[in-house]
């Protein structure tokens, strides 16, 4: 019998930080990825220039709890809903916390949230705030 006590041992949150589309601005994605790792999360970084479908496949295969999508190209209205639709197709939408980071105009935010984005973190967000959000909202296994 295993003696491990699931009550006291904190579960490791699995996160994927993903760059979708052609946008190569990865400074924020890399900083957040490293900060998540330092915060004790398990982190996978997608690498650049991924199609929405590639991200969905990877997120599903890696069975992540949190998917952080970084996008600064202005193509968020097209690409983010595609990722979410993909997760839904695999039945993974419900147990994946989807976050978006980058330059997202105010008027696009509601639509993205309606699609299923849990939170949007714009420029200047303290990383601690993002980490806290993940700790509080990462889905239970």
């Amino acid at each position: 019998m295993s003696t491990e006590n699931t009550e006291t041992e904190e579960r490791t949150v699995r996160c994927m930080i993903a760059k979708v589309g052609l946008d190569g601005h990865d400074r924020g994605a890399r900083v957040v990825a490293r900060a998540f790792r330092d915060a004790g999360f398990e982190v996978i970084y997608s690498g650049l220039h991924k199609a929405p479908d590639e991200i969905v496949q990877a997120a599903v295969q890696e069975d992540v709890d949190v998917l952080g999508i970084s996008i600064l190209s202005g193509a968020h209205n097209t690409l983010v809903p595609k990722v979410i639709a993909g997760l839904e197709e695999y039945g993974a939408k419900e147990d994946t916390l989807v976050l978006v980071g980058g330059v997202i105009p105010e008027e696009d935010r509601e639509d993205l949230k309606d699609e299923g984005v849990a939170a949007i973190f714009g420029p200047g967000t303290p990383i601690e705030e993002t980490i806290e959000f993940v700790r509080e909202n990462a889905p239970e296994r």
Partner: peptide, 22 residues
């Protein structure tokens, strides 16, 4: 725009959402 910068035509699948954007 991003597709032109990456050497992709506007009708390439990866260009979707990015044509004429930036």
């Amino acid at each position: 725009d991003m597709p032109s910068l990456m050497g992709l035509d506007s009708d390439h699948p990866m260009s979707e959402g990015e044509v004429g954007k930036e």
